[in-house]
Write a protein that binds this DNA or RNA. Sequence first.
RNA 1: GUCCCCAUCGUCUAGAGGUUAGGACAGCGGGUUUUCAUCCCGCCAACAGGAGUUCGAUUCUCCUUGGGGAUACCA
Length: 488
Amino acid sequence: MQVRVRYAPSPTGLQHIGSVRTALFDYLFARASGGVFILRLEDTDRTRYSEEYVKNLYDTFKWLGFYWDEGPDVGGPYGPYVQSERFPLYQARAKELIEKGMAYYCFCGEERLAKVRADQADSDTSEMGYDRHCRGLDPAAAAARIAAGEKAVIRLKIPLEGTTKFRDALLGDIEWKNEDVSPDPILLKSDGFPTYHLANVVDDHLMRITHITRAQEWIPSAPLHIIMYEAFGWEPPELVHLPMVLGADGHKLSKRHGATAVDEFRKAGYLPEALVNYVSHLGCSFEEGRDIFSLADLERLFKVERLNKAPAIFDYQKLEWYNGQYIRLKSDADLLGLVMPYLVQAGLLAEAPAPEPRSLALGAMPLVKERLRFLADAPIMLRYLFEEPPVPAPEEFIPKKLDKARAAELLAAGGALLPSCDLSDLEATEARYRAEAERLGAKFGDLMMPLRVAVTGSRVSPPLFESIRLIGIPKATARIGRAVAALS
RNA sequence: GUCCCCAUCGUCUAGAGGUUAGGACAGCGGGUUUUCAUCCCGCCAACAGGAGUUCGAUUCUCCUUGGGGAUACCA
């Protein structure tokens, strides 16, 4: 039997790093088993729905490099793949359950439900949730009220006794007492929209889903779904509940822990490879003694047995390390392509730069490749190549244990030497400067630091001689001249 | 409160009865180096606790403790 797995997001927010991790495992599971990966939009919550989130969903996965075999945009034999386009299906199925006596109309309004909840909170009862007030209603009477136009929801009849068993491919056998299952959850809302439970079960069955992979927060609704499958007389898919992703404080990952929307990572200059690689190791391992895995590697190596049961804490530092690794793996041309939008946004480069500034930027890539943590760091690091940096305060020029006069002297000497240097020969240039430092009785570093500050505007910068080679000796000499003047 | 799931270094993990408990990130200390970074080397650091089972338990069972999740006309 061919494996069919789906990622079924609800477009009620930006794609979250946690759900993307679930999507990744869905995707890998399908690919590793030669199965089919399906995207299904669960847009049944129209109060939180937004078109913008649908767009974000597509953008996110395109950027990450996932593709689906069936979905709203690519079609497929079991469509439509958007739940809002499938409403009649759910209504029919809910009514089917009523006819079978497995579900019932409930006429309880918000107020009564709120009161039930409040009473439960006040008393020391362990009973929680709906009190099954309408469960005992005469079906014919209820049907008559519906026919008369009264508003109602449809609730599933959870058996009052007995147990529901199911097997999780990861966690093994799980058995629930039916009295502990959510008491008669709503299947169809009063506005006729299905809830997650109904839509999910109906669609998973109709779309021939073979494996449900979702986060462990869904375990408590699994028995309820199983009861529904049984009520319909359907074979339930295999369940795989994935470990959750937590923040540093051990709670469900959320905004207060830092960035959570994939979009935020993307804008900050994270690479999709880094994100995928890092996230794939939250709750899963692939191969020992290796840290770097491409999406293609993961597709090949993924196995359900390598999944973990315990929740994983999201570690921003490790993600950052991965990002650096992937940045260093890029060719200069590729890196420039990635960094370009950031340079453009900072006003350092035109959107379609002329050959000269473009080659300047390209030449700068080897200088920053080892230094970038995020793509967004590039403009800060490279600004001095494109613009005249302001002359820093005098104390910035003064090496440790030296004074202002000495700094000016070293700076002037270093500047004077520059025009006669052949910067295509870095070694020779360095040798000359070392000799110059010796002649002046200065440490090499003390000769270099003021020069660096004068040329780049900062004590921290990419390698100096290569930087000068990029902007040209005349420009560098001019900057040094200005700095000498400022120091005198 | 009730129910469910989980438990190896600070973090992500390897380990599937016998290992000096391995790797990675972070931290710390060195080295390379014109600053910063990269890179290289080293160090620190874990089987939550208690009962069993067994010749032998990190590994199997139970209990305790701890952590997380669910308890919506959201998913």
